[in-house]
């Protein structure tokens, strides 16, 4: 209980980029593999290629590590877009990881589509470590796409359990 109290206090310190349909700032998560797309993002920095701040990178060792559950989790938590960026097939550090990522992606895509999440909110792309420009371009274009789509209808709504149930 003590811990919980502390947590509440800490929440007040959060940076606030609140969602509203007007000044909509999409929240986008990018799963980037350690060997190609993550270094590509680094390269975009080195070359000072500018892209929107909305994209946040989560590093994974291989695109093949990204499961539907990560993507769904992101959407569940309120992601407006999810990018999975891997090596090109022939560059994959682990031989077939990028291919596996693509296979898994097909499943994820079907699930999200069925959920009514717009197709464009989920994207798989192949970015080699030399393709800093591509990273920046993809980041820009993906953000633009999401911005155009507007906020995702899914968001984690922290709601209290209704009293009736609570008291049951």
């Amino acid at each position: 209980m003590k811990q919980a109290a502390k947590k509440t206090k800490k929440r007040s310190g959060r940076s606030t980029t609140r969602r509203s349909s007007k000044g909509f700032e999409p929240k986008i998560v990018a799963f980037c593999c350690n060997w190609c797309s993550y270094p590509a993002a680094d390269g975009a920095g080195v070359s000072r290629l500018q892209y929107p701040t909305n994209i946040k990178i989560v590093r994974v060792m291989c695109g093949g590590r990204v499961t539907p559950s990560f993507v769904l989790k992101a959407f569940e938590l309120g992601a407006d877009g999810v990018l999975v960026a891997t090596c090109h097939f022939e560059d994959c550090h682990y031989m077939f990881g990028a291919r596996k990522a693509a296979d898994v992606h097909k499943v994820t895509e079907k699930l999200t589509e069925m959920l009514g999440i717009e197709k464009e909110r989920l994207k798989l792309d192949w970015i080699s470590s030399a393709e800093a420009t591509k990273f920046a371009r993809v980041a820009q274009e993906f953000t633009d796409t999401i911005r155009r789509l507007g906020p995702s209808s899914i968001k984690k709504r922290l709601g209290a359990i209704s009293e009736a149930i609570e008291n049951e």
Partner: peptide, 21 residues
């Protein structure tokens, strides 16, 4: 399954959801 099923279900709590099921 990494909690994918639970995520699916929690996503389904969204009132505005327009599933294609």
């Amino acid at each position: 399954h990494g909690g994918a099923a639970q995520s699916l279900m929690r996503i389904m709590t969204t009132p505005e959801l327009e599933q294609k099921r």
